[in-house]
Write a protein that binds this DNA or RNA. Structure first.
Lengths: 344, 344
DNA sequence: TTGAAAGCGCTAACAA
DNA sequence: TTGTTAGCGCTTTCAA
């Protein structure tokens, strides 16, 4: 076995340049107070040896304790919404010279804790989270010890932190009211786990719209805990084969919408939460509740970096807009629509 | 200003439990040779103070030097293919108790170097890369110093590392031959930058299929460097308004396919590289070259961890399968098709 | 302008 | 079984 050649250290550079490690440190970090000629010798030694500063050792000693690393916990990076959040977060972090550690909770509160513990053990400066568990109080200790936290997309009840979300409740209430206005009274709801804040809100919005129209909510038309397109396809098939099937369906997010579309019969109205690439090109085009994941994540990342750099103002809740985009699928008339004139 | 309360250290736990830090270290790391009663006292102190081991300091001193962190550099996490790669990588890393640092090159060789430098400065144990630049020799120094490297999706010419890819050349040659067999002789090609290995291969496959059929390649039908759906939409519109427009188009990846679909007239045949969620539900359904990003990334991650844990066998190149899935759009007949019998 | 000494929080090696 | 000493690679502090 060959022994693994280790990377050069400051002391190697110092020896090569004939100076002390302190001088090397000053040159490597671009500090003033080094004679130009000395600096040039050090720089030459750095190049010759291929020296690169060890940020792990650096972080251990520095006064500001900053790792220039943040932790991003999403539900699942493969989800297009979460991918957009991750991409935007990484972009802001990169611009600020930071790196992003990424972890997925996959809607598992246990995994969520593991991931967050692994982040804090690595001394991240801050966390951007899409929380799963209803109760996030376990984060308080990290918070009081200086780790900055921002929630994005999903709020964390019981935790007093900056939060960037949309009005999920209002957006779904509006969408369901839209379906009701088009004559629907039996409307299906397909969502992920209710404990997830967004889906709790979306389900409440659904119920509120029904209630406002004097429609009794039928639990047979509601499915929670759907995690994949396949889950959603099975659920909508089941709901549609009920004795009194729905005439309209709401899919709680993009991934679920994909599954619903694969099996939804023509004639059933459909609205999806989240806009997606081909929504306008399907037959019929899909009416959606659009939100902007890039704007959400960008706002969250800016908030986080402000906190890391000393902003101690009270926690803020930023609510970003949503837009109901009617494209056709959400405007398919239901049995109660005015276009079908009742005969007497 | 209030001073930031710092997290407890081993010495705090040691003081609380009335033992030395070494004993705390043993308990925290679950090592044998601590009296049960002592261990219990330490454990109680850990709980009371909410102690969490500092992995940064730990890594600095440990003999194996492992950070239990790997770096993943993708082109752009928002791209569904890359998101799937990231998700699968994170999943394998999580199972092995590792974390993932994520960075995006966004097809910029300069940014690529920055990201990789930031990874190695943080002493990652290994790198999983989708390289951009044609020349990756700058990675050799990191490699000789012990950082394990695996390329996924894209190979890195000039670098002798494990690589997990598909046969891009063969897959596109087959797809373009498929279009030719359906009577097309003027076929458009839309791809990202040619320097990116995959797109170089895909373009070569395109040319090879034309050549095998005795068709002269027309540069007016080819566009490189497309980075978004909007880019692709503009490019295909331009190509179609040429004097002799193509009767078929190949989109080099999923993101470009979205843009093409938005503007492609019915009647123009279409094949996309990468399968995507709604491909089968468009009108006409989209014929695709399917590959499995999860399988690619899983294989790459396993290779990387084997290397990190001492596998020193020669670098391997794993070639995963692709599948041409005919769904309709790629079978639209062209002017030279046998179904249009030539009259004499 | 430069360097020596100390120490960040932990673990390796050894001693008791 | 427990503790002591040294040191990972760097930065801080202070002295020259």
């Amino acid at each position: 076995m060959t022994s693994r050649p280790s990377r050069p250290r400051m002391k190697d550079v110092a020896a090569e340049a004939g100076v002390s490690v302190m001088t090397v440190s000053r040159v490597v970090n671009g500090e003033a107070g080094v004679a130009p000629l000395t600096a040039a010798r050090v720089a030459a030694a750095v190049r010759k040896l291929g020296y690169q500063r060890d940020d792990v050792a650096r972080q251990l000693r520095r006064t500001d304790r900053l790792s220039q690393t943040i932790g991003l916990m999403v539900d699942n990076v493969a989800d297009p919404f979460m991918a957009a959040v991750a991409s935007a977060t990484e972009d802001i972090a990169h611009r600020r010279g930071n790196m992003v550690l990424i972890g997925s909770s996959r809607a598992d509160p246990h995994r969520e804790r593991e991931v967050i513990a692994a982040f804090t053990a690595r001394r991240v400066d801050g966390l951007i989270l899409t929380p799963v568990a209803g109760d996030q109080r376990f984060l308080r200790s990290a918070q009081t010890r200086g780790t900055k936290i921002v929630c994005v997309d999903r709020a964390a009840p019981g935790l007093d932190v900056d939060t960037v979300v949309v009005d999920n409740f209002g957006a779904v209430r509006q969408a369901v009211s839209h379906l009701i206005a088009h004559g629907h009274r039996r409307i299906g709801y397909l969502g992920d786990k209710r404990q997830i804040w967004t889906f709790g809100e979306r389900h409440r919005g659904y119920l509120a719209a029904l209630d406002a129209a004097g429609i009794d909510a039928d639990p047979a038309l509601v499915r929670h805990g759907l995690r994949s397109g396949a889950d959603a396809a099975r659920a909508v098939t089941a709901i549609l084969s009920a004795p009194e099937p729905p005439t309209a369906v709401l899919a709680g997010n993009e991934v679920l919408a994909f599954g619903v579309r694969a099996v939804l019969p023509a004639g059933v109205a459909f609205i999806a939460f989240d806009d997606f690439a081909l929504a306008a090109q399907l037959t019929p085009p899909v009416t959606v509740i659009a939100q902007d994941p890039v704007a959400l994540a960008t706002s969250a990342a800016h908030l986080l970096f402000a906190r890391i750099h000393g902003d101690t103002s009270p926690p803020r809740r930023v609510v970003m807009p949503t837009e109901l985009i009617p494209r056709g699928s959400g405007e398919i008339p239901g049995p109660g629509t005015p276009t079908r004139t009742p005969r007497r």
